[in-house]
Structures are given as structure tokens and as C-alpha cells.
Write a protein that binds this DNA or RNA. Structure first.
Lengths: 194, 194, 194, 194
DNA sequence: CATGAATGAGATTTCATTCAT
DNA sequence: TATGAATGAAATCTCATTCAT
């Protein structure tokens, strides 16, 4: 079934193009024509692979998240990783993660008013949350401590700190090189005794 | 004699309407007609007071910020306020601050691609930062401790935590009642020894 | 009846302002607000003195013509004027006549599609034509020659030459100083034996 | 395979429609919708081929000029043409040239206030001027006379006469049949000894 | 499958005109 | 009289979507 492979590949190409264009221009200014141009195809072609523009955009959001989770999973599978190694993957320290986080933010405000996007956002947060929680539990096991009772709120605190750092880093890129981002995250985790 | 109209008041009315509409519908879906309708006037009347739509939107952003800073200043002027009392003003715990923070987020992603909005965002952050820093210094004076050397990064950490909590609270309002928001902020400040 | 005098003066002020604005910005770009601003009044005031915008514009056209005819009449009343002295008044050699002719041209293309303006244009041409014809007859009397039979066509030829020079002079002002305009007109009249 | 459309032809069709509409209604009253209607398409289709309305209008002006120059070139290439035959092409003696000259006049007043149109107008005059000059030189060669020293001013005189006749002919069409236009032009050239 | 021309709804902006004061 | 705020019609431009080829 070569067609299906092509189909998937095509969708991926388009979604990837959408990610780049959104990160570059923002969600509002992203035209189907721009995405088509970036992907080296026409708008008509895109509608062959996606029902409509919104579907393309959602695919882009999905892809941005997948980038981040893939990175986290990769680190997670290494034998000697620390908790810090995991969560640092969410920070916009590489070009790739900067792009991914910019897309995430582009969709964030939309999620506040569009139920469909909101659902997606919530579901993804749950995915992130359980990942962080799992790794946190593993951490406590490694250091042979019992996990705190309010572990969910600890995770939310971590999440808040990470999201907050992302926001600042994207806004004032020059002031937030990788080292500073890492330093503040580390400071926070140290406070938590992690 | 001409019909007497308070220009400033009129502009405020329009900006306020814009704030409400943006918080309700998001930035992209906000039409001039919606704002006009909300303010009880016509689009022509709005362009009488603002050069164009962008000017109205920026006025709305300004107003949202002003709400927050006004609250902070009010608390700040009370004789026995704590540092916590100040920063908690930024959290979306009242209807008013929820609206203000929703507007802020609506503009955030735009600030990543539009230089003009970016400038505004950066300037406002600076305003926030210096306010937080000032109150932090006062705090250390009150408890007769010397302020840490990396006080700017401490402020950034606080900012990150607050921003992160805002993001989460807006997304899943039901899960984030005032008490939970307050609790997590307090936890963080306690970790910092504040 | 001081009111009436004021009324007339007011209309004149407005029409004069309109002339300046039209010459400056062109007919299309001339807004009632601009005219009002130039005249130091408001749009509401203008509608007190003119039924609508078109009336203001027509008054401006009228005024532009009056300037030219007034100049012609003044020269005409001098005892020792030549035919050349008369027609040279139509050329845009002074700031005033430049303005007047620019206004005339601004209305010209409108006269091709709007019957009302067309009528005005035709009537004014007739006024010009009879003036030129009269002066031409006087000229022939002075030099004791009989006027040519096709005197109307001679006048039209003169008119064409003058109009053509106006067009060129307005377009490329720098290349058409007063001397050049005068020279070409004189050359033409000399050809005609005038 | 895509719908095959000749881009150039399409642009020509639109420009031609614009020419007709402008000649009919004047420049100010020409709406994109009118042009679209005349061309049998929608406004959206037009902006597919032209960046904006101004681009359409300029194309129309260009086309009007091209009509005239094409006629001049055609006559010019005939073996036994006279100088008169050339310049008479500029007069509005046919429906086609009437239209072209009306469009030219429609843009004339705009050229007095819009630099872009002015440039175009000046460039086109230069084209016309050199054409006339060239033909005049040829004429003198044919009749074995030396060209006058002030040949440029002779050309300007001819231009003025032609332009002046155009103005009058367009304004009072009924009074200016082809024969009268030709007669006055011929009279003028005869005066010049051409 | 793919193209890209064409549509047409929708949004902003402009301004002459009106009218309450 | 005069003001200038407000209206609202009109026009342009944008762009997702459709569809003939």
C-alpha cells in the first residue's frame, strides 16, 4: 500500500511546513497559500490531504507537541538520566524546541476561546503531567525517598515554572540563552530538593 | 454649541468594550463591529476616537495591564501588606483579573511576531519586574535580611511561576479555584524563604 | 443687511479654501474636512453656506475662472494693451494663475462625464471665446485690417494653443518658466500675423 | 492539470475593460466592480491578476497610450505618409481614439498631484516628443530643407496645438467632427510651413 | 491526483451628511 | 449660527474553498 505511505508522508510534509510558517508568522497571519508555498505545493493539494485549514493547523500543533514528547522519551529511555534532563526538554533551548514552543504558544490563546483546541490542549497537558509525574516518582525511587503526598501539585508547580520560563525565553530571546534557562530551572528543582 | 463629549472617557469606554470582547472571543475573532456593538456605538464612531483597529486593540491591552498594576499599587500602598499580597494580584482569581490576564495572553502570541506588540510586551515586563524587585527588597528590609545577589533572577523565577500559574488557571478554570492558585503561589514563595 | 455681506464673504472664504486644497491635492483627494480646516472652520459650518460638497467644488471652479477673467478684464481695460497681453493671462505664469489653471484641469476630466460640470465648462468656454474674439476684432481694427472670415476657427486655434501650453506647463513646471511660455505663445501669434 | 489561462491575455482583457469604463464614467466613478462586470468576472478575479486597483488603472492608461502609439507606428511605416498623417492619429477622430484620449485626460489631473502618475505622464510625453521630432526631421529631409534650430520648441508648439484640439473635441463632441479637427490641425501645420 | 483560477463572503476603512446641543 | 460626534453606506482588499480541467 504505497499510497498510504505517501499519504502519510504528504500530511507530515504539510504539517511540518505549517509548523514553520506558524512559528515564523504567527497563527493569524498564516495563510494556506504560505503553507502550500513552504511545502512546495498548491493550496488545492493541501485540501486533498486535509479537510480544511483548521485541520492543517491542528496537525501542526500535534506535530509541535510530538517533537517535544519525542525528545522527552528519548532522554527518558537513557539509563542514567535525571529528572532535570527530562523537563529541560520542554525549554526553548534549541532551534527545534523554540519553534515547537512558539507554535504551542500560538495556539494557547486560541485554546481559551475555541473548545476544540481547548480539549486538545487539556489532553496534551494531561499527557505531559503524567509523564512528569512518572519521572518524578522514578526520581524519588532512585533517591530512595517517598514521594510527597501532594505530588500532583508539585508537578503543577514544575509545570508552571517551565511554562513561565518558556514564555519569558520566547519573548526576549537574547536575554535567555540556554545557560540561563537551565540555571533557573535547576535553581527551582534544587529548591524542591530534586 | 457642540455636543459635549468627554474624549478620554469615550476612549476608555471603547477600550473596555474591546477588553471584554477580546476576553470573550479571542483576538482573531474580535471584529470592530463586535466592539462597537458592545460599546453601544457604530464602527464609524470608534474610528472617530481611534486611528484604526490596531489602536483599539492596543488600548485594550494597555487597559488590561493597567487593571493589574492598579490592583498591585493599591495593595502596595496598604501599610501591612506582604510580598505575597502583591504578586497574588497578578493571578486570575477574580473575574476582573481573569479577564485582564486572558487579554494579556491573547496578545502574547502576537507579540512573538509583531515588533510593535513585542516592544509593548517587553516594556510592560520591565515595569512588572521593577515593581516585583522593589517589593522584594522591601520584604528583605522588613525581615532584616540582606537581599540575595542574584535578585533579578529570583524575580524572574517568581515571574515564571506566576505566569505559569496564570496559564494553567485560564486553561482549566474549574480545576483552579482561587484557593488552589493561592496555595501554589504560597508554596513557591515559602520555598524561596519569602 | 450685514448678514448677507457676511454670508457672501463666508462663501468666498470657503470657495477660496477649496481652490487651494483642490490645487494642492487634486479633486478626488479633497475632503470637506480639508477645506474646512484650510478655511479655519468646521464641516458643519460649510454645510450652512453650501447645500453640499458639490456646490462647494463648483464654487471653487467658478472662483478659479473668475480669477482668470478678472485678470483679462483688467488688462483689457488698459488703453494700450495688445492682443497678446490678453491671452497671456490664461497661462500659468504666476502662482495665482497656476492655481487657477490646476483647478480648471482638475474639473476638466469630470466635465467629460458629469453633465452639470460639462454645461459649466461649455458656458465658460463660450465666455472665453467671445472675449478672445472681441479682442481679436479690436486688434484687426487697430491695425486697420479686416478680420478673417473664419475668425471663430482662428479663435479656436488660439484656444487650442493656449490650452496645450497650459497642460504642458502644469505637468513639467520646471521646464516651463514664464519666459518659455510667453515665447511659444508669441511665436504662435506671430505665425498668425497677430 | 490546471485550468489553462493565458495570464497576459487576461490582464489585457481587464485593462481593456478598465479603459472602457474609465472613458464612460471617469476615473473617480470607476469602481472595481464596474470593471469586473464589464470584463465578465468578479473583483476577486481581478485582484488575482493585478495587485490592486491602482495597478488596474495604470494598466488602462498604458493601454490607452499604446493604442495611440500603435496607430502612429502603423502610419509611420507606410511608405508615403506625411507628417500630418502621423500627428492626426492623436486626435479623437475615431471611437477608439476618442476613448483613448478620454482616458488620457482622466489621468491628466491625477498626474498633477500623484508623483507616480506624473512620472508616467512625463515619460510618455518624452516618447511622444521624440516620435514627433523624428518625423519632423524626416519631413524636412523629404522636402530638402534644413530643420529649424529650435526644433524642440516647434515640436512643443505642435504638441500644444494637438492637445488643445483634443481638449476641445472631447468637451464638445458635436461641434468637432473629424473634418473640423483635421482642418484646424492642417491650418496650424500650414502656418508652420509643414 | 494535482492545479490554480475563480468565487464571494466578510472585514476594515473612509467620509459626506445629519443633528442634538 | 456653529460645532463636531455619530451615522451608515460604499468601496476595496483578503483569502478559504470550490471545481473544471
Amino acid at each position: 500500500m504505497p499510497k498510504i505511505v505517501n499519504h502519510k508522508k504528504r500530511r507530515t510534509t504539510i504539517a511540518q511546513a505549517a509548523v514553520e510558517v506558524i512559528a515564523e508568522q504567527g497563527l493569524e497571519s498564516t495563510k494556506l497559500l504560505d503553507i502550500a508555498g513552504f511545502a512546495g505545493m498548491t493550496t488545492g493539494a493541501i485540501t486533498h490531504y486535509f479537510s480544511d485549514k483548521d485541520a492543517v493547523l491542528m496537525a501542526a500543533l500535534e506535530m509541535a507537541y510530538d517533537m517535544m514528547f519525542a525528545n522527552m522519551d528519548q532522554v527518558s529511555s537513557a539509563s542514567d538520566h535525571t529528572f532535570y534532563d527530562i523537563v529541560v526538554q520542554a525549554l526553548p533551548i534549541t532551534q527545534e524546541s523554540r519553534t515547537a514552543m512558539t507554535v504551542w504558544m500560538a495556539f494557547y490563546s486560541r485554546s481559551l476561546v475555541e473548545p476544540e483546541v481547548s480539549c486538545h490542549q487539556i489532553a496534551t497537558h494531561a499527557r505531559w503531567h503524567s509523564k512528569v509525574k512518572l519521572e518524578l516518582v522514578r526520581h524519588y525511587q532512585r533517591v530512595e525517598m517517598s514521594a510527597p503526598e501532594d505530588i500532583d501539585d508539585v508537578c503543577e508547580g514544575i509545570t508552571a515554572q517551565v511554562n513561565g520560563l518558556i514564555i519569558r525565553s520566547l519573548t526576549e530571546e537574547a536575554d535567555w540563552p540556554e545557560t540561563r534557562q537551565r540555571k533557573l530551572l535547576k535553581t527551582y528543582l534544587t529548591l524542591l530538593g530534586i
